[in-house]
Amino acid sequence: MELILAIFIGLLYACGVYLVLRRSIVKVILGIFVLSNATNLIIFLAGGIKRSGAAFIAEGAEKIDPATISDPLPQALILTAIVISLGIASYILALKYKYFEVTGTHDLDQLSKTDQK
């Protein structure tokens, strides 16, 4: 399973990198989404997927054997990362919208000059 997941992550990365290398800004934004999702998956995989119980302590019990649940730490980290990427995504959207509005072009190669025309 790890092998398949790793290949899936590789595919996501390949797609993300390809999108990011485009000249059209919309594609670049999409690429950034893909890359952030793929990176979250890497962290998730790093926590191990053999143990797949939900990370909750059952009612009445005092603790739970770590060997039975999936690792909670990567989950917490990814949760943070997802919400941050939500913020980043909206910021990039706003930025690109603004860029398009100001420059009137969506070709990133036109961005090589910092001055407005």
């Binding site: 590789g10 990365y13 993300g16």
Partner: peptide
């Protein structure tokens, strides 16, 4: 409010980008 997609890059640079991205994907795997 954003532009439509358009093919901006030529075929050669697209093939180059595909090679790079596949290499990155393989590397990540």
């Amino acid at each position: 409010y954003l532009p439509k997609f358009a093919k901006l890059s030529n075929k050669r640079s697209r093939i180059r980008d595909i090679i790079i991205s596949l290499a990155v994907g393989a590397g990540v795997t």
